[in-house]
Design a protein around this nucleic acid. Sequence first.
DNA 1: CGGTAAATAT
DNA 2: AATATTTACC
Length: 422
Amino acid sequence: MLAVSLPRASTPGETVGESAFDFSGDFDIDFAELLAGLDGADDLPDLELDPCEILRADSAAAGGAENLPAEATDGVGAQPSECSEEKVPSDDEILSPGSREEALAPEVKSASPDGGGGCRKPAAAKAKGSQGKRKVKVDWTPELHRRFVEAVEQLGVDKAVPSRILELMGIDCLTRHNIASHLQKYRSHRKHMLAREAEGASWSHRRHTYGGPAGAGAGGGPAGLKREMSPWLAPAMGFPSPPPPPHHPHHHPHGIQHFCRPLLHVWGHPTVIDQSIAHTWPKHLLPPRPQTTVSSPLPWPVAPHPPLHPPPLGSSWQPQYPRRFPPPPVPGIPSQPIYRPAGAVQAAVPPPPPPPLPLSKRAVPLTNLQDAHLSNECIDAAIGDVLAQPWLPLPLGLKPPSLEGVMVELQRQGISNIPPCT
DNA sequence: CGGTAAATAT
DNA sequence: AATATTTACC
């Protein structure tokens, strides 16, 4: 039932890199395959008890999987005993879709009062003596990271401070240090990513300007610029899973969602991935929810529409979610003036989606547009509106939408009065 | 406390 | 060798 297959880079040889893995629509994972790939014996060097443990809860009762102590106490003072001793989960246990299904329980808050990382004692600890000078390593699972990002986004990247983030995350077993550390890296990566995005944007712009075909062959982009999957740039990727329908098995009353597509560890550690994503990933996550792909007229799967309804509690769907960064060049997608012209951004994604304005009033400053151009420009703007929405995954590695498809999607979203193309 | 650099672990 | 995470410092 959870059959899935890891999307393979469509362009073999060419380093499309992770671009093939967009966080968009449905993403299937073939557990069978994963299991197969595990060739069973591979060790699970990582035994850390990650804070996410908490995310999966204690209520799990089903599936026969034992519940791991949801509380993680600070390794320093605590007795090692506290730590779920070497939890050496068998792969089957970990991957058993059945058990995992319920394993990921809704409970998010841990009663655990103190902070701490997890329980595993670092290898080094042995040398350091029982004092366990070194704190246990926190496993920043995608889910955990997602929450982190949510919190940060909520606070504002600039105002986000460890303590506050921690608060919002509501994960007791994390310490401010953990957060600070992660935040440090988050910022770092973000900075890097932004730089890249900018680079890519300019490149894209040039390409558009000069009309050259996308970097022939290459994934598209400046030499060596591979699009990276970056969970850091929250809006574009790693968006929270849209709330499943209330009746859906995974629906959680509190809006606690699981990660959509935990393909790579939080930000795709190469090291980890190599070892087999199976080890790091499925451990904590539910099989990616068949991502109830709202059948979309568009050539790419469209995430169910969170935008229109207010976010479920605690979700990161903030009204202030305008696309903050220029979309990166997408391989295979001609960079038509698809995106909103600079300056139109503000008006583009207003929180309260009032009755769809006639296209002629949308995003684009039409003042100086000729009537003759109106249609195309407006359509572009409208398309930009759609594409710019954070919940709409970038169609990485996918074919560009046909105009027709886009139109349909636009209409579906209530943008109906689209002037005829000229 | 928060930020950042250095140290360590994997 | 590179990256992730923890620790030490300011």
